[in-house]
Computed example of a mutant assay.
Amino acid sequence: MTETTHLLVVDDDREIRDLLTRYLTRHGYRVTAAKDGAEMRRFLADRNIDLIVLDLMLPGEDGLSLCRSVRAEGGPPVVMLSAMGEDADRILGLEIGADDYLPKPFNPRELVARIKAVLRRAQGTSHAGPVATGSVHFCGFTLDQAQRRLTDKDGQEVALTAGEYELLVALATRPRRVLSRDDLLEITRGRSAGPFDRSIDVQISRLRRKIEPDPADPTIIKTVRSGGYIFSPEVSAP
């Protein structure tokens, strides 16, 4: 990443905003800070933001609602922060579209590592290897790796977060091969993955809702008992 990478820190605690602004600036990022959702929206409207560091508990509109709005509008990746460290809160944040989640208190070095990992995924330089540029077709969908987009049989784009996109690429380019959660974490997140990371299961669930005819009875991304997941349909290139 370079000093032109622009981060938006959204937290109602001025001390935390100032601390993160100083720390992230020292690591070469350009940083804008907002105290609430209204400021966040204003900055997103008139500045080119590459990633949002978003606190869950905010006055007025909370972080979950703001993250959902960012996803619906096709906004930048989101790393969510929260003093609520329970699994249920973390999973909820990931389900509504956060690209990563970090409980407070946290080590700023870990935040930087997670920001870098999310930006790598968003910019197509993940640990999955060299960036592919071709398209693959499956079940009426087209996964265009040059444009980093998924379209359905009618040519309509299916909105994916950076994490969902990388996970789909990992699966669709390795069809009919059982991939464990650890395999998928390594491919999509590399060393930023932590122990007991459940984000793969959350993202699989979100992907199924977007591409499966019946998410409750998946036929595209199947679960392998005690193994992981397998991308089952036939995949073809143009």
Rank of each mutant, 00 (worst) to 15 (best):
A45V: 02
R71N: 05
V158Y: 12
R149P: 03
R17C: 13
E157V: 13
E61W: 04
G124M: 09
G124Y: 02
A33T: 08
G75E: 08
A83N: 03
V31L: 01
V79P: 11
A34C: 09
H137V: 06
S135P: 02
E15Y: 14
D100N: 15
K104S: 06
P77E: 04
D50P: 04
F43C: 00
P130I: 03
Q147T: 14
C67N: 10
I16H: 09
P130T: 00
E61F: 06
S69Y: 04
L20A: 01
N48C: 02
L102H: 04
H137A: 08
R47V: 00
D36V: 05
Q156I: 13
L56T: 11
L92R: 14
G93T: 06
D46A: 07
P59C: 05
M80T: 11
L64S: 13
A33D: 07
P108F: 04
L54H: 11
L24Y: 07
A128L: 04
L92E: 13
N107V: 15
D50G: 12
V53I: 15
A33M: 06
A132N: 01
Y101M: 07
A113K: 13
G74I: 11
K35M: 10
E15C: 07
L102C: 05
H137K: 09
G63P: 14
V79G: 11
A38R: 01
E86T: 10
A128K: 00
G93F: 12
L58I: 09
S69E: 15
G97M: 03
I16C: 14
G140F: 10
G124R: 06
D154S: 14
Y23L: 08
